[in-house]
Write a protein that binds this DNA or RNA. Structure first.
Length: 353
DNA sequence: AAGAAACACAACCGCATGCCA
DNA sequence: TTGGCATGCGGTTGTGTTTCT
């Protein structure tokens, strides 16, 4: 696969953008849309490569991006999501409306990483430094191995889920419902759930009360623009789809938490039961998929063995109130509270029961 | 006041991936 | 199926600004 040659052309300007260039780019996109980025620069009268224009637009000029200082809540969200997702900046950005992945990445590297280091946490593992570095302890090695295996399985399964969920959806629509025209849904579909918050429902449903000091409200405050967010959300979306798809073509509202617990307690059984019943001729196909997906069951079961891993993400709920230090005026108590709210669950309770 | 060091962030680089002819 | 193109993404670099000595 050849690389784009646009950046290798000679005579194109590089480096910081001038005000005039910004205005040209902005004016052109407002009038025509960006279209093909590669074709844009000459049309807009810019001596830049298309890639540079795209970057300037997506990271700076786009009208729907928020600039300026990160709020306390945004900081907390980034830290929590980073603990879950690692350096997947675009996935993290999709949960922070109006922030670009580049901005979040920079903020992490210049501020948050240092904050974690300063309080003795490893910015990669989000665990106390000695956990990450002192691998002489058999228990530590076991934990790290377990995490590595878990992550490996998760990534592998994620790839499969994405393709399989599509297949299941196709099977469902081609067999469980009559041919077109599609019957109308008897009940309106539930409002789209912010994908990044799927994991929260599990933690709330499975372990009931939110953590002390955290006020849970609703989850409407996050951007839902990026549907393909994360492995976690894609996995849960898959499960949600499976469990919500009833053979009679009616979309039922389910308690997501109880569904996923049912799924864990009886891997595949509930979904397969529903789909293969009623003489679904493609049941064998679905069952095959589910057999293939038993790994998912293991993963979710792992989550349930590590409830503390998920507990920490309750703070992601929009409107959740987490007391934190005011900038430049940080009392020690508030600092402790701030970090406890963010970090305690995943740093102090990770050890396998 | 001047130079050095540290910091912050915009921009670049190059690989990965999806789409399409 | 293959190859070219466009775009997404994460790591890295460059440059302007601020703080320190």
């Amino acid at each position: 696969m050849g690389r784009s040659a646009c950046c290798e052309k000679v005579g194109l300007k590089k480096g910081p953008w001038t005000r005039e260039e910004d205005e040209k780019l902005l004016a052109y996109i407002q009038q025509h849309g960006h279209g093909s980025w590669r074709a844009l620069p000459p049309k807009a009268g810019l001596q830049r490569c298309g890639k540079s224009c795209r970057l300037r637009w997506t990271n700076y000029l786009r009208p729907d991006i928020k600039r300026g200082k990160f709020s306390l809540q945004e900081e907390q969200t980034i830290i929590q999501l980073h603990a879950l997702l690692g350096n997947r900046w675009s996935a993290i950005a999709s949960c922070l409306s109006k922030r670009t992945d580049n901005e979040i990445k920079n903020y992490w590297n210049t501020h948050l990483k240092k904050k974690l280091i300063k309080i003795g946490l490893d910015p990669i593992t989000h665990k106390p430094k000695y956990h990450a570095l002192d691998c002489n302890q058999p228990k530590d090695i076991a934990n790290l191995n377990h995490m590595a295996q878990w992550e490996s399985a998760r990534l592998e399964a994620e790839a499969r889920i994405i393709s399989e969920s599509k297949l299941i959806s196709d099977v469902y629509h081609s067999t469980a419902t009559p041919p077109p025209p599609r019957p109308p849904l008897l009940a309106p579909p539930p409002p789209p759930r912010p994908s990044c918050l799927d994991v929260l429902k599990v933690s709330q449903g499975a372990w009931g009360t939110p953590r002390k000091g955290v006020t849970i409200t609703n989850s409407n405050g996050f951007s839902t623009t990026n549907a393909a967010l994360t492995s976690v959300s894609s996995m849960l979306k898959f499960s949600d789809t499976m469990l919500s798809a009833s053979i009679d073509g009616v979309i039922h509202e389910h308690s997501f938490a109880s569904d996923i617990i049912n799924y864990v307690e009886s891997p595949g059984a509930c979904a397969i039961g529903r789909i293969t019943s009623e003489n679904n001729q493609d049941g064998y196909q679905v069952k095959g998929i589910m057999d293939n997906s038993l790994q998912i069951h293991d993963m979710v079961a792992d989550w349930l063995r590590f409830p503390s891993f998920l507990e920490g993400f309750t703070d992601l709920q929009s409107g959740s109130v987490v007391t934190g230090p005011a900038d430049n005026a940080v009392s020690e108590d508030n600092t402790n509270s701030y970090w406890n709210n963010i970090l305690l669950p995943s740093t102090h309770k990770w050890i396998r029961p």
